[in-house]
Write a protein that binds this DNA or RNA. Sequence first.
DNA 1: ATTGCGGGTTACAACGTTGTAGAAACCAGG
DNA 2: CCTGGTTTCTACAACGTTGTAACCCGCAAT
Lengths: 336, 336
Amino acid sequence: MRHRLKDVAERAGVSVKTVSNVVNGYQHVRADTRARVEEAIAELHYRPNLSARNLRKGRTGVIALAVPELDIPYFAELARHVVAAAAEHGWTVLIDQTGGGPEQERKAASGIGDHMIDGLILSPLALTADDLAALDGLPMVLLGERVDHGPADHVMIDNVAAAREITAHLVGLGRRRIAAIGSQRTPEGASARLRLEGYTTALAEAGIEYDDSLVAPAPAWHRADGAAAMRHLLTAEVRPDAVFCFNDTLALGALRALHEAGLRVPEDVAVAGFDDIEDGRFSIPTLSTVAPDKERIARLAVELLAGRLTADRDAPPRELVAPHRLALRESAPSPC
Amino acid sequence: MRHRLKDVAERAGVSVKTVSNVVNGYQHVRADTRARVEEAIAELHYRPNLSARNLRKGRTGVIALAVPELDIPYFAELARHVVAAAAEHGWTVLIDQTGGGPEQERKAASGIGDHMIDGLILSPLALTADDLAALDGLPMVLLGERVDHGPADHVMIDNVAAAREITAHLVGLGRRRIAAIGSQRTPEGASARLRLEGYTTALAEAGIEYDDSLVAPAPAWHRADGAAAMRHLLTAEVRPDAVFCFNDTLALGALRALHEAGLRVPEDVAVAGFDDIEDGRFSIPTLSTVAPDKERIARLAVELLAGRLTADRDAPPRELVAPHRLALRESAPSPC
DNA sequence: ATTGCGGGTTACAACGTTGTAGAAACCAGG
DNA sequence: CCTGGTTTCTACAACGTTGTAACCCGCAAT
C-alpha cells in the first residue's frame, strides 16, 4: 500500500539513489530521467518515510513547544506565534502540554521527543536550573522567569519594570489603596515574585506604605482564583480602590467578583492585568494590562533555537529581553 | 555525546540485543545481567533513538491533532482533553494549527506527519469529503460538521438539535424578535448552516415568522465579528429582544456591543452562545450556552483512532454523536 | 552417557533513507 | 581517435533499532 524509494526506482528503471536525488532536488539529474522518476512518484503516490530520513540525517525538522496549559489564553496565543515563526524556518511544532508538573516537564525535556525533535522551547514552572542542567543534550530555549541564569538560552520580559509601570499607572489615577492579586510563595511562583517586586517598588516610589493585607495569594492564575481573591479582599474593612492582578485571567475573575459585589470599575475600583490576552479587549469593562510582545517573544525563541541547532551548539547561554508596553483600556483608563 | 545501544552493550559486556531486551522489558534476562545493563544505561544516560525504533517498528507512538486555530478557546479546551485521552493510550499528541486553509489542512493530513504519526484527528474547515478520500493511508478521525458521511471516522454533536433547544429556550423566556449571529454562506460554514437550521426550526415550532434581517453573518467567529454583527443588528428599526450566537466568542463580542449601546442583558436583550468555553462562566453577565461534552468528544475520537490503528483498519467509517446540554446562566437565565 | 528442554544470550538481517566514492557516459579540444 | 573533465548515475554502507533464528549452557529425564 505504501511505497518506498525502491518501488519508485524499479518502476522508473533507475537506481534507488537517483530517485532519492530527484526527491531532494539534486542538480545533476538529466531532465528526462527526472521526468520519468517524477511520473513514477506520482503514480505510486510515493511519500518519503520521515523516520528513515531522520534516522539517516540525525534531524527531524520538528521542534517542541512545551507549555503548562493550553487553555490559558496567554499560552495559546504564544503557541500561535511560535508555530508561525517556526514555519518560516521550515519546522513543524509539536505542542506539548505539561500541566506544570515536574515529571511532565522533565519528560517533555528529555523523554518524549528524544530523537524525535531537534529542539525544545520550554516554559517551565516546576523545573529548576539544576534539573535542567541535568538534561544535557537537547537544544533548548526557556521562556519566562522560572529559571534565572540557567544552562540554556532564555527569553523573558522585564517583569519587575512592567509591574512597576502598571502599578505606577494606578497610582497616577489617584489610587492609594492598591491591592495585588496573584502572589505565590511556592518555587513555581517566580513570575509572581517579580511582579510583586515591581508592585512594591512602585508603591515605595509613590510614598505609599506597603500593606500586606492588600496582597492576595492565588494558588493558580485562573479566573476562579482571581474571583475568589477579589471576594476575599472585599471582606476587609477598608476597600481597595485599585487592584493589580498578576495576569489577565485573574483580572477577569476579579472583574466578575467586583460586578457581583455591585462595585463599579473603574470608578470604585480600578483593575489592571498582565498579558494582554484577547479576552481583555472585549470584557466589560475592557481590561488595562501589560502587553508583552508575544510575537517578538516567539520569534526570539525560535531564532535562538535556530542558532543552537546550526552554528554554535556550545556557545554560552544567551538571555534576551522582549519589549512590553501598557495597554490602557476602560478598567484603568489613561488619565487624560 | 549521545549514546547508542552499542555503547551500553560494550560497557555492560553484553550484546546489543540484550540491552535492547532490557530496555523493552523482555522477561528472560538474568537478574544480574539486567542489573549490569541498567547500571550502564544510567551511567551513560542512554535514551533510545525513537526515529530508529519507529523505522523498525513502523509505529511512532505519536498522533496528531489538527485544528484551525489554537487561540479559539473551544479548540484549546478540546486539545487539552485530547491530550489527556491520548495519554491513557500511551500516545503523544502533536498539535497542529492549520489556520483553516485547504493547503495547510492537506499538509496536516498527508505531508507533515507522514510516517511520523500513526494517526490524525482532524477538525477540517476547508477540506471536503473528496479531498479527504484522496488522502488514503493515514488513519483519520474527523471532528465537526464539515464533512458528512466522509471516508473516515467521525465524531460530532447534534448541532441542529442543540441550536433548536437553545433557541427554544429563548422563546420560552418570552422573546419573539430573536436574532442570530454567525451565519455563513461559504462551504466552510457547515456548522453555521446546521445551527441556522436548528434556529429556524425552533422559530417555526413556536410559530414565529423567520425574519432574514435578524440573521447576521460573521466571516469568522471571533469576538470582533460578534461585536460588529451585534452593532449592525442594533441599527435596525426594531431592536431584537434576544440573540443566539453560533459560538461563545461571537456571544462575548455581542455582549460587549450591547454594553456599549447601553442595553441591559438579559432584560433588554437575552444572549445565548454555543461551546461553553471557560470565559462564558466569568463574563459579565455570565453566558447561557450549549455545552457540548468536549471530554467525551475527545475520548470518542481517540478511541475511534485506536480502533483504526489496532483492529479493523478497513472497517466502514463510523459516525458517533457526542451529547450536549444547555448551560443556562445570566445572559438568558432559566425562567424559574 | 546421551538426549531433550528451555532459559539466557547472541549474530545477523532488515526497516527506508542518504552520504561517499566511484563507475559510466558524455563532451570538447587536440 | 585519444585525453581530460564534467555530468549523470549507481553500488554500498551506514544511521540505531528490533525480529528471527540459532546457539550455548545447565539440568532433568531417559
